[in-house]
């Protein structure tokens, strides 16, 4: 199983929450800006409080799409309407529509709790949105854009390598 490489996990682990949050928020608002169609597909579930808990990081990400709100926390998972748990690379793979959520659920690589309808709406909306994280990251990096995007692509390829459930 390809969990987050230690060289990446460690810095995220010890980084102050505010820094992780700042980076994650930047990506989040960049994605929302670039993919207005995501909102439309989400419909009423824009108001949902979604929780993402990477099992290989001691962090929880809480997102409310309508409020463009993202918070990061440690420790006990915060109260949310719908939560998804799994390795970070898989959660990011889902975000990009590179992994099939159902397949990962069948194989027990992902677990979902709470409002299933909201979770399904998010999955479907993301799946149609053609999000490319390295590109979005690159866009945030200004003059270093090609470097950041390239590095991110390399990491993604490495992280998803060897999984039956990844394509493209």
């Amino acid at each position: 199983m390809s969990s987050l490489p230690p060289i990446l996990a460690k810095p995220v682990d010890i980084a102050p929450i505010w820094l992780v949050e700042r980076v994650a928020r930047l990506i989040f608002s960049g994605v929302l800006k670039a993919h207005p169609d995501l909102f439309e597909r989400l419909g009423d579930y824009r108001q949902t409080r979604y929780g993402f808990s990477p099992t290989d990081l001691p962090l929880h990400f809480t997102v409310v799409p309508a409020a463009q709100q993202l918070t990061v926390s440690r420790g006990q998972p915060p109260l949310v309407d719908a939560r998804i748990e799994g390795l970070l690379v898989l959660l990011l793979g889902l975000l990009e529509g590179r992994c099939d959520a159902d397949a990962l659920f069948f194989s027990r690589d992902l677990s979902v709790t709470g409002d299933m309808e909201a979770m399904l709406a998010l999955r479907n909306a993301l799946d149609d949105s053609a999000i490319d994280l390295p590109r979005e990251l690159g866009a945030l990096a200004g003059p270093f854009s090609p470097l950041v995007a390239g590095t991110a692509r390399y990491i993604r390829t490495k992280a998803l390598e060897g999984r039956d459930t990844t394509w493209n």
Partner: peptide, 10 residues
Amino acid sequence: RQRGKAYVAE
């Protein structure tokens, strides 16, 4: 139709 595009492509 309820599956993701990755599934459909594969």
